[in-house]
Nucleic acid binder design. Structure first.
Length: 466
DNA sequence: TGAAATGTTGGGGCG
DNA sequence: ACGCCCCAACATTTC
């Protein structure tokens, strides 16, 4: 090859704005090969909902790239094997990609740097996070384990740079193998259960920016008031886009800060801080995942291995199907099943119910979320479940047990969220709809009595050293 | 980013 | 007018 070519390996960054690797590859000025490799190995390979969401997002990215005269090459298999073969086939002299942070990525990226690095320039870029995991350290140079000091440390760091623009002048595409058609990746379910997801979540980078702008312009100022009300559209609702990288964290951060500056100029105080704090929770999740890579599958502290989790598949199935007899829990689980999403407040409630009242292993819950969430993100999922179970780095204290009826009354007082997802109970009045004791036909009796479940959870947790 | 149990206070009914 | 009791409202402690 005389001119060379640059391979851009798309991973968890299915976008063209603020894509550091793509930006640098375009700047090289030699022909481009844009490739996505579907990896099917490992315990945390994409779940069913995520596969659907990947399909839709890849389709949107493909369309966006075609608009610029580019083509997204699709491959399936081991990334190292596929990229090695691709590099040889198209004679590329550079492989650029954005860094990932999941446990098996450390070894994968090292192997790729080693094997392909002998034949071409291999560069990885930081584009997924606001702060690299190593950039945030305690005074003694160790990783943070508690959110609030971590958050304060982030605020002391230089402000994240603004997002990179999408490329304006694209090099020509390089000659490359045809790859697979999107359908051949077989990401779509065989039975069409995704209608509810499609209705709620338009896929792709453009939809992501529409969602972000709408939140920043219309709703961010009410975030503090509305974010905990599952019947309202009070959260940003961008996690599905962040999770596949259709949207970058920098774009979110920057949009919020621009809005904050406009508010300040208008003499008003901005509500950006409350929301950007949530973005830092995501950073913290990646920080923990990077420094403690055993945590997706095992408790943060080894002594929790001995915890007496119960194992009962029929109990688990009732939780999964939204038939526990606890209205807010069942509403949440059904929202998840039908839309691939669940309101964050409700996620905490259903997780607490699983780990505390039902006493089931948090990993059973984590795996179900992984299979059903379109925003399944290993860092966030791990942090959330270990927090709920009480075994994480910065975990909820063992005695913090949500009462799903109190939570329901407090955050969904008119029962709007419950009525939306529990048609059996929709005719009950605002008071009765929350109460498991008020029975209606077709809706199950509570699996576990609230007070008794709490008592038993405390007894189990008392067996642990603390 | 909890909830229940327990303690404290103060207003008002009432003998 | 006074002391007593009840209890709601709030605060603190405990799990």
């Amino acid at each position: 090859m005389t001119t060379g070519a640059t391979i851009v390996w798309f991973r968890q960054d299915l976008r063209i704005h603020d894509h550091a690797a793509l930006h640098a590859a375009v700047a090289r000025g030699v022909p481009l090969v844009l490739v996505y490799v579907l990896e099917e190995q490992g315990p945390w390979r994409a779940g069913a909902a995520m596969r659907y969401w990947l399909h839709e997002t890849l389709a949107a990215l493909s369309t966006d790239l075609q608009r610029h005269g580019q083509r997204l090459l699709l491959l399936r298999g081991d990334a190292q094997v596929e990229l090695t073969r691709l590099r040889a086939a198209c004679g590329a002299d550079a492989l650029y990609f954005n860094r990932r942070y999941e446990p098996h990525d450390h070894a994968l990226d090292a192997r790729i740097a080693q094997t392909l690095g002998a034949r071409c320039e291999v560069r990885s870029f930081a584009s997924h996070l606001l702060f690299e995991p190593e950039a945030v350290q305690t005074g003694t140079g160790t990783a943070y384990r508690v959110f609030t000091p971590y958050y304060r440390a982030c605020l002391q760091l230089p402000t994240p740079r603004p997002p990179l623009p999408a490329p304006r002048r694209w090099p020509a595409p390089a000659g490359a193998p045809a790859g697979l058609a999107l359908e051949e990746l077989q990401l779509l379910p065989r039975i069409a259960w995704a209608g509810g997801i499609a209705a709620r979540w338009p896929a792709g980078e453009q939809a992501a920016h529409v969602a972000l702008d709408e939140f920043i312009d219309e709703r961010m100022n009410d975030y503090a008031r509305d974010r905990d009300r599952p019947s309202l559209n009070g959260t940003a609702g961008i996690s599905p886009y962040l999770c596949v990288g259709a949207l970058s964290a920098r774009s979110c951060w920057h949009a919020a800060h621009q809005a904050a500056l406009r508010e300040r100029d208008a003499g008003r105080t901005s509500a950006a801080e409350g929301w950007t704090r949530q973005l830092i929770w995501r950073e913290f999740a990646y920080h923990l995942l990077h420094h403690f890579p055993h945590t997706p599958d095992a408790p943060f502290r080894a002594e929790w291995q001995a915890f007496p989790w119960l194992h009962d598949d029929s109990v688990l199935r009732r939780w999964q199907r939204g038939m526990t007899g606890i209205p807010l829990v069942d509403a949440g689980m059904r929202e998840l099943w039908h839309t691939g999403y669940m309101h964050n407040r409700v996620r905490m409630v259903v997780a607490s119910w699983l780990c505390k009242h039902l006493g089931l292993h948090w990993l059973a819950g984590a795996r179900w979320f992984w299979d059903t969430l379109i925003d399944a993100d290993l860092a966030n999922n791990t942090l959330g479940w270990q927090w709920s179970a009480g075994c994480g780095a910065d975990a909820a204290p063992y005695f913090r047990i949500f009462n799903p009826v109190s939570q329901s009354v407090k955050f969904d007082p008119a029962g709007l969220y419950l009525r939306r997802w529990l048609p059996e109970r929709a005719a009950l009045d605002d008071k009765a709809i929350h109460q498991p004791g008020v029975r209606v036909s077709g809706y199950p009796e509570a699996m576990v009595d609230l007070a008794e479940g709490r008592r038993q959870a405390l007894a189990r947790y008392a067996s642990l050293p603390r």
